[in-house]
Write a protein that binds this DNA or RNA. Structure first.
Lengths: 213, 213, 213, 213
DNA sequence: GATGAATGAGATTTCATTCAT
DNA sequence: GATGAATGAAATCTCATTCAT
């Protein structure tokens, strides 16, 4: 009896609710990625989301739960990296280039993701759940496949430690975004942000392929 | 201090004062490196230092100032890395190995330093002063020299971007310590912490020398 | 309500309205009797009533008013106790037994009433209106009559303080329900709830007979 | 080294701390007994204790813990009732009179205790720990002994249910204090509070004697 | 130099109540 | 008549900092 709802009013409310949740999550992502769990203030999140503080608790329980939700929703974004068009015919060289490039560009376009990962790493993964690993694993499996293909083809040295290599690729990409300020002091300052990024990516791919010698 | 009351009591007090400051700084380093500026609690620092909270304010002014002091005292540690015994006769290969190994072992032995840098990076260097760069630059100049020597000798390819390479070496070493937990899940778990570190270092040096192909 | 739209829709609406009010009142009785005015939550009442919170305000004004309404509707229940079939021919002994038994069983069957009275007593009767006394007085007048009849017949001692006796009977019955948990620890635990109740009632009647005769 | 404390400053501080704790506990007893756990406000307790709210959390953890502490400290008061001068030579009659009178007067002098018990009963003994039972048991054991002595002497009927009797005595005494307002309306209003109490106590003792003998 | 008690400002969280539909 | 989202006020709780000794 009371399950019957006004057909036309409910969607509007649900819509508003959904929109509010999205607004909160977006604001929380902004603030948490910028200041970390401890540095963030619920008040600021509410203000940024242009919503009453109370709704945050209504929708997400408490600060920590909200943070976990922010992590979850952001970590899931990395999923799209794994949807890269891996092409068996193209050969390992081209596929590695593509994979690394994809990951690098994903990081470039998701600064908040990079920062959230950073806070989590320092917090010793207190809140990061298994989701990250699931998603990441899919991506890594792909690279894994590519590398194995390369080994079989004799292009890649057979004694390569794949786990180490994956970590290294991660490191080479990540550092550009985590230590961006540091880097800008070192690098030539006469070039644009895009050029700098391209240069870094080329260096990484080159480094991965050849090392320095 | 101005009115010396007893010749033999003054040194004792100064001694105690100095010891207290050291204890506070040590405790603050522990807590700040573990939890960051926002996550740290003055109470916990005081408790860890086994000293009255009031003394922290007496010696260091306030929380932020204490944090800056912790940064300063820890950043200065990186200095010893640059004291590596760079040997012109040994050849670039051996020198690079030594330099990378030195840096890697420095990070291994100074987890707190690594973490403090990490918090600072995420906090966009709010408090980090120029000290770090000075010291680091000295270290990097040395590697720079080594690399240039290698290029001249024809061992290293002449078009190498040295700034990028330095950043890459940094990344390859750092990630092991910043993303340690993540890594432990990926890597073989049957080996000890030391073995894992040795393996990583070998991989890095190998990677730096050869790349993967 | 003022503008009747459809002849046959109005009764349905009124019906629903009435049913909603009843549901709210029932839920409110549950929650208020369980947790008291301060411990109760409007949200919980709404949820229990399976109705929108807003309706509570629509029908009852506010939390306090709802509480008063709960009190009123529950206190009126005590009325039925006074409807005991007092039989002049049966003699005081039988009538007292009946009166006490009636009251005891009324309490047994109306735990919520007992608890609401309890909260009200502790809240110093903040909201309890005179209704309770009116009803109770009627009941007590009856017992009064029974006792006086007993005195006249010489069965009950003539110097009995009737007001005190009424309070004592009340106490002997009430405590079983208000301090139920305490009692269960003291009493033999091998018997059922019903047996325990019967035993208590017998004790009370025995106690009263010997006490007053 | 830092265990050494200024001999003359420490006692003063400890004194102040102890005094503060006592003040908080006293204020909390006032407020909790008056309004119950849910009705009480930490702010009001702090204000009543003339202390900063923060200290309440410092000394007692949180609201609930403070409440439990209030319960504990008040329940322990009932202990002194059991220290009544029970005299084997005096005979059961005199001893029962003394025991009941002691309990009644204890309740008379400890309204807060009575009310705290009341809130706890309604809260289904959520927070009351075993302490009450321990203390109470001691008191009840004494009455138990008295009653058994009376049974052996043939003064008290041998089939008396002692647990029930104890509960009844409790009820007869308690109701006077819990339903005080109700009672005042019923009883003759021409007499003083003390006279009314004396009258009630006499009635109880009379009621008990006749009820059990 | 050192201590423990105390504080005010501000953080998180809760709750009765109202708004828009 | 009914709904779910939204709110402001106030509650609990925390924390850097200061006071009195």
């Amino acid at each position: 009896m009371r399950i019957i709802k006004k057909k036309n009013s409910v969607p509007t409310d649900q819509c508003r609710a959904e929109e509010s949740k999205v607004r909160i999550l977006k604001a929380a992502t902004d603030i948490f990625s910028e200041k970390g769990l401890d540095g963030a203030r619920i008040d600021e999140i509410a203000e940024t989301a242009e919503i009453n503080k109370r709704m945050i608790y209504h929708y997400f329980g408490n600060k920590e739960d909200l943070y976990v939700e922010v992590l979850r929703s952001n970590l899931s974004k990395v999923g799209y990296v794994s949807s890269l068009d891996f092409d068996a015919a193209a050969g390992p060289r081209e596929n590695i280039r593509k994979a690394v490039s994809n990951y690098f560009h994903f990081l470039a376009g998701n600064e908040q993701f990079v920062r959230l990962i950073g806070w989590e790493a320092l917090n010793r993964g207190r809140y990061k759940d298994t989701l990250l690993y699931e998603v990441r694993n899919r991506y890594e499996e792909q690279i894994n496949d590519i590398l194995r293909a390369g080994i079989e083809e004799g292009l890649i040295k057979p004694d390569l430690d794949i786990a180490q290599t994956l970590l290294s690729i991660d490191a080479l990409c990540l550092i550009y975004f985590t230590h961006n300020e540091t880097f800008r002091r070192i690098a030539d300052c006469g070039i644009s942000q895009e050029e700098m990024m391209d240069k870094r990516l080329e260096h990484i791919i080159d480094f991965v392929f050849n090392g320095i010698m």
